[in-house]
Design a protein around this nucleic acid. Structure first.
Lengths: 224, 224
DNA sequence: CACTGTGAATTGGTTCACAGCC
DNA sequence: GGCTGTGAACCAATTCACAGTG
């Protein structure tokens, strides 16, 4: 049985590593470094040179033999591949402490992620201004998505409301969701979800803490 | 060459899934569900029954043929395996907006993660009380780790300071670090790191958004 | 009879090793 | 000479399929 249709299916693990490369390359660019080898990049990211070369080879031939990769060229290429050469409009749903921290986080804008809307369902929050945005009722989501050209939603509501909020976002046409609520959301095909749950991360580490009590462990750096 | 020493090396991917099972089981337990099959659990978590059975089989035989798994029994077993049957003491370093949101996050305590210390290097922050904790200067970390029996550190400082703060934590004897700063930290063997960087998560999703413009995609739910 | 637990089969991902090139 | 790009070899993870069992 053939794979699904003719396109160069790049494995998801590879796609998830590309942003890491971008981050490292940006740092190098800022330090005026012009060329980097897969070996050097690998050392920075605690991965192997072969892995990096393999990953990149799924998208093209960016390097120069005997020399390495031009930082600028590779960076530009990866940004284009990842769609980072444009601005993305983001809505944040839920303006509790976490939502507020997200809205005010200065790390999004320089990467092209612009928070253009803040929503909540709590009447006491609605109308407040956070990070220059007036908090809107959740019912406004479909309109905002359309008018503000929102492609990404960040969900920072309590667990009980997360699935319904995600359903609404999907309904409104959003196809990428960054979910901070501790659930495994159900979404239709074609919608991407990334979940961030610090409790899960902690719980995976405690496994090694307790088993490390028995014997020492090596140090695989929990991805990313 | 043998693997490293005689123990039942459980792959890291498996360990990272266990907390997901715990989360789902807790929810079932709360709803008074007594028995669950790998099929049902798989549906909740968007994974296959075989995967769940395989994962669990690395740790023991928890199920009953023809019936499934006792929710309570399996939950207890997994909690013990992950070391969740005790209380873990956590220090939060960095009390900016994110650090404050973390300290006040009500999701940690019920899972046995108790934030017992808050630290910062900004003199204006030191002495303030956040979530019942007085903010201490970073220099106090070694003392606090010892006196408060801290095993885990959450790093929520700006990028520029993250590596040094992590070095200090390691120096102080911490062997598990949850890092929110956008860096790939360098840590010695035996120290676990989990990184949380929403920008990386967003960047992985935009890849699919732009490639999806060309043709529709299936929906693998970005892990967890 | 409906499920688990698990070897075997398969699929997927990583690493090796080297030809080719700058 | 030093590095990339890439098939081939290897290793890891997932899925299959079925024997075993409450």
């Amino acid at each position: 049985m053939p794979k699904q249709e003719g396109r160069l299916e790049v494995p998801e693990v590879v796609v998830e590593r590309l942003p890491l490369y971008v981050r490292a390359l940006k740092e190098l660019a800022q330090r005026q470094v012009e060329v980097v080898s897969s070996k050097e990049l690998g050392e920075r990211l605690h991965t192997t040179p072969a892995q990096i070369r393999k990953d990149l080879s799924s998208f093209g031939r960016f390097g120069k033999q005997g020399r390495g990769y031009s930082v600028r060229t590779l960076l530009t290429a990866l940004q284009q591949i990842l769609g980072l050469d444009r601005e993305w409009h983001v809505a944040v749903i839920g303006v509790g402490r976490l939502g507020r921290a997200i809205i005010s986080y200065p790390g999004f804008a320089p990467e092209g992620f612009k928070v253009v809307a803040a929503l909540d369902n709590d009447p006491r929050q609605i109308g407040q201004v956070i990070g220059g945005l007036m908090v809107q009722p959740i019912e406004e989501l479909p309109r905002l998505v359309k008018e503000q050209d929102i492609q990404i939603t960040i969900v920072a509501v309590p667990r009980e409301h997360a699935q319904e909020v995600i359903d609404l976002a999907v309904q409104a046409g959003v196809r990428a969701i960054l979910n901070y609520a501790p659930i495994t959301p159900r979404v239709p095909n074609g919608v991407r979800v990334q979940n961030i749950d610090p409790v899960l991360s902690l719980q995976a580490m405690t496994y090694y803490l307790v088993s490390g009590e028995r014997r020492p462990l090596k140090t695989p750096s929990g991805a990313r």
